[in-house]
Design a protein around this nucleic acid. Structure first.
Length: 469
RNA sequence: GCGCCCUUCGUCUAUCGGUUAGGACGGCACCCUUUCACGGUGCAGAGAGGGGUUCGACUCCCCUAGGGCGCGCCA
């Protein structure tokens, strides 16, 4: 069997959105699983809407996600001449014809059809007409001569065999009047020329598959294997489209998600390997198969993504996390955090094992680390301030005095002192610890408060305590 | 409107004719505990509806309903 060649073919009219990212992931996983290649093709034939910025966003999005492609990326528009040649070849073969209808006439045609309760399709006006009748000065388009009876069968790895009756497909345009190819032609020619063996894409292309097969047949080319994967829907069940808030992958990075978490989560959306939930990318590659792809659309669930992200944060090396925190702080323009993180590298690194189990995202990790580089007097959350009662302040002051005299500044030593202090006054440890937490971090949530003291050091601890007492 | 696709707990899913329908997230309760997390234990929670086929259907077929996609000189 020939080596597998898949491709990811986004159009650069926006960022790399989450649905595209998953399509890329599946193409990538299948290629890696089979030891084949995944090619990248930028479908930039829409000159109006394609932008270089979008192309860069796609490259960067894929790189961040860790999805590497083989060979150089193909820029579809650069192959326009080849596409036109194929359109002309189709013309010579009698599989296509010139059509001189204007866009206005076509719009009228669709409106009329709709008004009569018929499908809005091209009526084949120029299909068998003598080109000699062509109006002067009108640049024609080339249309495929689609079969008018019989059926087109799409053999799909996910959807099974899907049958379309020929009369439901019209003679669509393959070459525009300006000589540039339409999507339908360009995809077929490129997939063929690039040697693509497996087309894995969203199932919004399922009906296009039937149209494309007509072109393959017109050229006597073999049709690649296909797998049309269901789309991702929003939490409300509606399409997760750009206009409904679908986000680019960089947005997920900015929200503090780790690429391996996103890969794991995305993989579970529409694909499964038994009851496996948390698995490495290598594991996914080993397990991946087209047959295990689901048919139904899945809804995007941030709660689960967060859970998975938390899992990978706990698994990460502090040094790596520190680097991501710094990058994220900078990317978000959080200058104070970036500076604080940068100036306290060692302390943050030491604190991370305490921070990791408490954070679901890198952004939360940054928030949790703020107590390390907070400047005195630290600002206290309004909600936390309630805990600083007169009585609590008394405890803080008294305990601070004891801390000043401690011989060893370590978690066990402080812990012992705190318990003795509480017991001597008939208090529960929480009664003492919680006000200390507020005075030291300004919040009610933080790592173990004795760890916090060791992290920021005795002097800073005493200073912060006296600030609040 | 026409065509095509889809339908198991709130969500993601397992099941590939015979299971007390399993797992994960989320929820709730309890345990751990200096807060919050993490971790642990337990509970609630599903086969859209209706017909068939079969000794036996979540599983196969048909209909209905609901949802999605497509029907551009966009991709």
């Amino acid at each position: 069997m020939a080596p597998v060649v898949t491709r990811f073919a986004p159009s650069p009219t926006g960022y790399l959105h989450i649905g595209g990212a998953r399509t890329a992931l599946f193409n990538w996983a299948f290629a890696r699983h089979t030891g084949g290649k995944m090619l990248l093709r930028i479908e930039d034939t829409d000159r109006e809407r394609s932008t270089d910025g979008a192309v860069q966003a796609i490259f960067e999005g894929l790189k961040w996600l860790g999805l590497d492609w083989d060979d150089e990326p193909y820029m579809q528009f650069s192959r326009a001449r080849r596409h036109a040649e194929v359109a002309e070849e189709l013309l010579r073969r009698g599989q296509a014809y010139y059509c001189y209808c204007s866009p206005e006439e076509l719009a009228q045609m669709r409106d009329d059809a709709r008004a009569n309760g018929k499908p809005p399709r091209y009526n084949g006006f120029w299909r068998d007409r003598d080109p000699a009748e062509a109006p002067k000065g009108v640049a024609p388009v080339i249309r495929i001569k689609a079969p008018q009876s019989g059926e087109i069968r799409v053999m799909d790895h996910v959807q099974g065999e899907v049958v379309f009756r020929a009369e439901n497909l019209d003679d669509f345009i393959i070459l525009r009047s300006d000589g540039t190819p339409t999507y339908m032609l360009a995809v077929v020619v490129d997939d063929h020329d690039m040697g693509v063996t497996h087309i894995i894409r969203g199932d919004d292309h399922l009906t296009n598959a039937a149209r494309q097969i007509i072109i393959y047949q017109g050229m006597d080319w073999g049709v690649p294997d296909m797998a049309h994967i269901p789309l991702i829907h929003g939490p409300d069940g509606a399409k997760l489209s750009k206009r409904h808030g679908a986000l680019g992958v960089e947005a997920y990075r900015q929200m503090g998600y780790l690429p391996e978490a996103l890969r794991n989560y995305l993989a579970r959306l529409g694909w499964s390997h038994g009851d496996e939930e948390l698995f490495s990318t290598a594991q996914m590659v080993e397990w991946f198969s087209l047959e295990a792809l689901n048919k139904g659309a899945a809804r995007f669930d941030f709660a689960k993504l967060e859970n998975i992200n938390g899992h990978y944060i706990r698994l990460s090396e502090p040094a790596r996390l520190y680097a991501v925190m710094l990058d994220t702080a900078r990317e978000l323009g959080r200058d104070r955090d970036a500076a604080g993180l940068d100036a306290n590298r060692d302390t943050v690194l030491q604190a991370l094992p305490e921070l990791q189990p408490r954070a679901k995202t890198v952004v939360e990790l940054i928030d949790l680390a703020q107590f390390i580089y907070a400047t005195r007097p630290i600002t206290v959350d309004p909600a936390a301030a309630d805990l600083l009662t007169a009585e609590a302040k008394g405890h803080i002051q008294a305990f601070a005095a004891e801390l000043a005299d401690l011989t060893t500044w370590s978690v066990p030593a402080i812990d012992e002192a705190a318990r003795a202090f509480a017991e001597a006054r008939g208090l529960k440890l929480g009664k003492v610890a919680q006000p200390l937490r507020v005075a030291l971090t300004g919040r009610t949530i933080s790592p173990g408060i004795f760890e916090v003291m060791v992290l920021i050091g005795r002097q800073e601890t005493l200073d912060r305590l006296y600030d609040q007492a």
